[in-house]
């Protein structure tokens, strides 16, 4: 705790690569076996929303929504607040259920299961099995404050995936090194800055070897000077692995940098989609143009 060591200083301002020194594993290495490698066939529909409608009371948040995300792609959802972006992530996490329509992940139904050729609401066991393919990073980090950094990352692999403790710890060390926090392994989350906590949360999500990583406005709770460190880690992961990403963000430069495709939401519908180049430089839709000029 009291080592007057320079490496103990919060290192959010710089890239985590700078603070971690040499010999840092690549993201692909740290993710280790089982993580989606570059060799995996791309172009398959990994996530598919079919005619999904979600209402909260009178309010229709998602209106008959159809879209899909292919394996290995990075999709960014943008749009004004209340347009339904976060609802999509919460549906994928089965934190809420759709009122109509179906969602599939890797060919399996989410919140539904097939019984005798019919779709019925799924039990908790089914949901948990499908959800294992998905990892999520939250706006408020949601680290477990009662566990040290290392245990935050190993807890689920050990108890959910049944991974051997030592193996989980070794993998966790690799991931924590990847996010540049090796010297903070033995600290509690509250002893870290917001940016450091968010990087631990990213490592925690990756430790479950998800096929999809959901990012819910991961920088909006951070002080401005801490944003870069978190985005660098994510950029690194986006470029060096082919983990699929679905990302809700207000960081337009980040969206432009990592996305293969950008979806513009308004009032529960996708009003425009396309490459980042197209959306950010030459949008077709007036609402998109209006929104982009308002966030800049």
């Amino acid at each position: 705790m009291n080592t007057p060591n320079e490496s103990n200083q919060p290192s959010d301002t710089g890239s985590p690569a700078d603070s971690a020194g040499t010999g840092r594993p690549s993201a692909a290495e740290a993710l280790g076996g089982g993580a989606p490698g570059k060799s995996r066939a791309e172009g398959r529909e990994l996530i598919k929303f079919q005619d999904v409608t979600k209402r909260f009371g009178e309010n229709t948040v998602l209106d008959d929504l159809c879209f899909s995300v292919d394996t290995g792609k990075h999709v960014t959802l943008i749009g004004p607040s209340g347009s339904g972006k976060t609802t999509i992530l919460r549906l994928l996490m089965t934190l809420i259920k759709p009122d109509e329509g179906t969602i599939t992940v890797d060919g399996e139904y989410l919140t539904h299961e097939e019984k005798n050729g019919k779709l019925v609401p799924a039990g908790d066991a089914h949901n948990r099995a499908v959800r294992k393919k998905i990892g999520m990073v939250f706006q408020q980090f949601n680290l477990f404050p009662n566990m040290k950094v290392l245990r935050n990352v190993t807890e689920a692999p050990v108890h959910v995936l049944g991974m051997d403790k030592d193996e989980a710890a070794e993998r966790a060390r690799g991931l924590i090194e990847l996010v540049g926090l090796t010297e903070h392994l033995d600290k509690y989350p509250t002893q870290l800055s917001g940016g450091q906590q968010q990087r631990v949360a990213i490592a925690r999500a990756l430790a479950m070897r998800p096929q999809v990583l959901l990012l819910d406005e991961v920088t909006s709770a951070l002080d401005p000077e801490l944003v870069a460190g978190v985005l660098d880690v994510l950029r690194d992961i986006a470029h060096s692995t082919d983990i699929t990403m679905v990302c809700v963000t207000h960081e337009m430069s980040f969206a432009r940098d990592i996305s293969d495709r950008v979806l513009m939401f308004d009032q529960g519908k996708i009003i425009e989609s396309g490459s980042p180049d197209k959306i950010f430089n030459d949008p077709d839709n007036d609402r998109t143009r209006e929104f982009l000029s308002s966030v800049h």
Binding site: T94, D124, R131, K132, I134, G135, A156, V160, A205
Partner: peptide, 10 residues
């Protein structure tokens, strides 16, 4: 929610 996102059992 975080526990759920990590597929932890209840």
């Amino acid at each position: 929610e975080a526990a759920r996102a990590l597929s932890m059992s209840t």
